[in-house]
């Protein structure tokens, strides 16, 4: 490499020419450009774009090196740059999606595998002690019993439906571990959702309420990674999350069962529940299978109670109907903080 290698950051929203070149470079590596990427590090040699790595919050993706320039140790340089760029943007703990064939390469760059869906996708993190120390914390909260239930809720917001699910799980388990999704992308903030769950499950015995983590239904574990065969995207994106649960979180707490409510409205959640049957139970992991218990939604006036219905009613300002679907603590918070001004006729 006699020409000087140029390395710099690109904002894809601002630099259309650079973006077009990145799209072509990714295509040469059978990767699709992802619109969520906020910043790229690129290498240019003799005016030619030869490597790129993208960053979406704390997730590294769209990493490619021109096939003509592989074997020059550019990868280590590229990963160094992206790790430093992420750090400048306030992200220290990083996740990375790649094809399983590339796990060994990224292993040399300080990334460690978290979950692998064979032939499809792998998720890695940039610390050898990340999920292990999280699980060590969980282990301290283990409870004795033959049936250890688990529930993961977003609770956006907490409804009587959630309460019914937790009550049912508690009645059929020796102990229940309840997690609240921590990612703050929902209408109701994580802080508020957690407080509403805490208030909402009061009086139900043998339940531990856990804060969510990056290892569970988060931007990192639930991010779609767009491979060429679009059909498999949906599968791999639930598989990573569910394998993390089965291989790490469930063994740490001794979880034997996972409880979910049937999902009549949201297609993504419906698919997640369906995929649970496969990734938590089938012979796809060395970790013990987890029983999945899907219970019918509780109903109000013959209609299933769902958080999405509550949000629809909230947009319509229909608090008298909401009052039938949610506990008083949720109602009070919605009225005081999440009242949505109805748009004027337009």
């Amino acid at each position: 490499m006699s020409e000087e290698l140029l390395s710099y950051a690109v904002d894809p929203a601002e630099e259309e020419n650079e973006r077009q070149e990145i799209v072509r470079l990714l295509a040469r590596s059978d990767l699709d450009y992802e619109i969520g990427v906020e910043a790229f590090v690129v290498f240019r040699l003799a005016r030619r774009l030869i490597a790129c790595a993208g960053l979406e919050k704390n997730v590294v993706k769209c990493v490619a090196i021109d096939p003509d320039w592989r074997g020059e140790a550019l990868g280590l340089k590229l990963l160094t740059e992206i790790v430093h760029l992420a750090h400048e943007r306030g992200h220290v703990h990083l996740f990375l999606y790649t094809k399983p064939d590339n796990v060994d390469f990224f292993r040399c760059c300080g990334f460690y595998p978290l979950a692998v869906v064979p032939g499809t996708v792998a998720l890695m993190e940039n610390t050898p002690v990340g999920i292990q120390s999280y699980c060590n914390q969980l282990k301290k909260l283990r409870q004795p019993g033959d049936v250890i239930g688990s529930i993961v809720v977003n609770a956006n917001p907490f409804t009587y439906g959630h309460r019914h699910l937790v009550e049912h799980a508690a009645a059929h388990s020796d102990w229940v571990h309840l997690f609240v999704v921590a990612e703050d992308v929902s209408l109701i903030s994580y802080r508020d959702r957690f407080q509403l769950v805490k208030a909402g499950i009061e009086g139900i015995p043998r339940v531990t309420l856990h804060p969510g983590s990056e290892y569970m239904v988060s931007r990192a574990t639930f991010s779609a990674y767009f491979f060429k065969e679009k059909g498999i995207v949906g599968d791999c994106f639930t598989a990573i999350d569910l394998l993390l649960f089965r291989n790490w979180i469930a063994p740490a707490l001794g979880v034997t069962h996972r409880f979910v409510g049937t999902e009549p409205f949201c297609r993504t959640t419906h698919k997640y529940n369906a995929d649970m049957m496969h990734w938590l139970r089938a012979d796809v992991s060395v970790s013990p299978a987890i029983a999945v218990v899907e219970i019918p939604r509780s109903e109000q006036d013959q209609a299933p109670i769902s958080a999405s219905a509550v949000r629809r009613l909230l947009r319509a300002g229909d608090f008298s109907t909401i009052a039938k679907l949610v506990p008083p603590t949720t109602l009070a918070l919605l009225q005081s903080k999440y009242r949505i001004e109805r748009p004027t006729a337009a």
């Binding site: 280590l76 340089k77 990963l79 160094t80 790790v83 750090h87 220290v92 300080g110 610390t127």
Partner: peptide, 17 residues
């Protein structure tokens, strides 16, 4: 949390927390 170094040969990357 802080970071120093690179992943290149004969170097090291240090991350502290």
């Amino acid at each position: 949390e802080a970071l120093a170094g690179t992943l290149e040969s004969s170097d090291l990357m240090v991350r502290i927390a």
